[in-house]
Amino acid sequence: MDGFHDLGGFQGFGKVPHTINSLSYKQVFKQDWEHLAYSLMFIGVDHLKKFSVDEVRHAVERLDVRQHVGTQYYERYIIATATLLVETGVITQAELDEALGSHFKLANPAHAGGRQAITGRPPFEVGDRVVVRDEYVAGHIRMPAYVRGKEGVILHRTSEQWPFPDAIGHGDVSAAHQPTYHVEFRVKDLWGDAADDGFVVVDLFESYLDKAPSAKAVNA
């Protein structure tokens, strides 16, 4: 889905609040509840096996935009985990509200039911020029919008395969497994002159890609 989470290239932000080699990271959890975010998420994913990490990502994406902008990072994972635990029937909204003493606002419902991977095509090879499919998906997808329809070159095909996010992200445990490709794009091809020069490499599932129309293999 084209949501606020998909921030690559989004303009209007100021400086990154960091100076190199500051040691602020050494206190990993700054507030006494932050460790609960991933812990409770993994209780849902690994211990109860009620949902996948991909569904958690999608639940974060489903946060209402106005809410999303104002949340802290770990807070989003608390809300996403709570949302999925309610949606899978482990707990109820009423139980959350009662424990909180006020309304516990969850993420918005999914807008789509997910989709299947494209299968049966030959894999792409290192050096192939590929184009990212010009698709608009209402559900979960792990293709940053800034590469949609853009052409790049394959640097690497993973030796492992993973369930297609657009399916497993909606709870489809029969999702086809696919390799991903490290696809290199020229920054100028993404944003023209309104960008610094250089390259961006995006890790893209096979189903997000087609061979480029003028598909000449490039020697790496």
């Binding site: 802290q72 608390i78 482990v90 516990f104």
Partner: peptide
């Protein structure tokens, strides 16, 4: 919603703990 992020985290924890999950 007037609760803090920490209160919401602990509320979720509490609900799961009560169910012994």
């Amino acid at each position: 919603t007037t609760s803090t992020p920490g209160e919401r985290a602990r509320a979720l924890f509490q609900v799961l703990k009560q169910k012994e999950l």
